Simulated scan of single mutants.
Amino acid sequence: MLRKSLYCALLGLLVSSAAQAADLKIGFVNVARLLEKAPQAERAKKELEREFSPRDKKLVAEQKSIKAMEERLTKDASIMSQSERDKLDRDLLNRKREAKRAQDEFREDFNLRRNEELTQLQKEIFEAIQTLAKEESFDLLLTDGVVYASEGIDVTSKVESKLETGFKGSKK
């Protein structure tokens, strides 16, 4: 008798859990797609390009200049005096060092700024996801680590719309 009542109680618990689970509203958001396609991502890319393009052009020009010096040294070494060759070697070595230092600084500065922009974008995406979840009464929105999500629960396009609306509103 005890076993039968325990079985009934367990069955009742399972049935009520299944009924509650059927009422859950679950969705999925592809954050990687948003990081790529959101208008804020394009804005950040253009801003980084605008900010770092002049320095990049200077570095490229310096590399070309160094290459020209190397070619001159190779081509004219036999007709140069030893002191001229030594001076050109020193100048070349100093310019290479300076160019490497400038390239390293550029890379560090660019990475810092890119990370700042990425952090800001991730914050905006997170806020858009939370807003959508509250407005549409989701019980659970999943992002990373999902192996499969049907199109019926993929709300990435809705989050993207929220980001676009927020982007247009911030441009005014």
Rank of each mutant, 00 (worst) to 15 (best):
D91K: 14
S83E: 13
L92C: 02
I129L: 07
A41F: 00
D86L: 09
E108I: 15
K123Y: 07
Y7K: 14
V31G: 05
I79Q: 13
E70C: 01
A149I: 06
A9Y: 08
E164W: 02
K87G: 04
R97Y: 07
N111P: 02
I129K: 14
N30A: 10
L73C: 09
K25L: 09
G169W: 05
K58Q: 13
D56V: 08
S83M: 02
L118H: 03
A18V: 08
R101I: 06
L35G: 13
S81F: 04
V159T: 05
T131H: 08
D109A: 11
S137E: 10
G145R: 06
D56W: 12
R72V: 01
L34K: 08
G169N: 13
R55S: 10
F52I: 00
E49N: 10
Q20M: 12
A9W: 08
E47H: 01
R43H: 02
R85P: 11
L11Y: 09
L163H: 06
I129E: 03
K75T: 12
S65C: 06
R50Q: 08
L73A: 13
L6N: 08
K134Q: 12
Q130D: 09
R97W: 02
K58F: 01
T74C: 02
A32F: 04
K168H: 09
E51H: 00
L121S: 13
L141N: 07
G152K: 15
A61F: 04
T119C: 06
K123W: 04
C8A: 15
I79T: 14
N111H: 04
E51Q: 02
Y7C: 06
K58A: 09
R72Y: 03
K4Y: 03
S17D: 10
L34A: 07
N94Y: 05
R101Y: 02
M69K: 14
E124L: 15
V31C: 01
G12I: 06
E127N: 15
A68E: 12
Q82T: 12
R43K: 08
K168R: 14
L93Y: 15
K46E: 00
K37F: 01
T131W: 01
S81A: 08
L13P: 12
K172A: 04
V60W: 08
K171T: 00
K37L: 07
E42W: 04
N115G: 14
L73S: 09
A77R: 12
A38P: 11
R85I: 01
N94I: 06
A133F: 00
K162M: 09
S53Y: 02
T74R: 13
K134Y: 01
V155H: 03
N115L: 07
L13W: 09
E71N: 13
A21H: 04
E49F: 01
E71R: 05
A61P: 11
Q63C: 05
T119Q: 14
A38G: 11
S157L: 10
I79H: 09
C8R: 15
I129T: 05
A32K: 08
A22I: 00
R33D: 15
N94L: 13
E116K: 08
T165V: 04
K158N: 03
S16N: 08
E49G: 08
L93M: 14
D76M: 05
A133D: 03
I79M: 14
L141S: 00
Q40G: 10
K123C: 05
R72M: 07
S157K: 09
I125N: 03
S161C: 00
F106C: 05
A22W: 06
K158W: 00
T143A: 11
D91R: 14
A68Y: 06
V15C: 13
K64I: 00
G166W: 00
V159K: 09
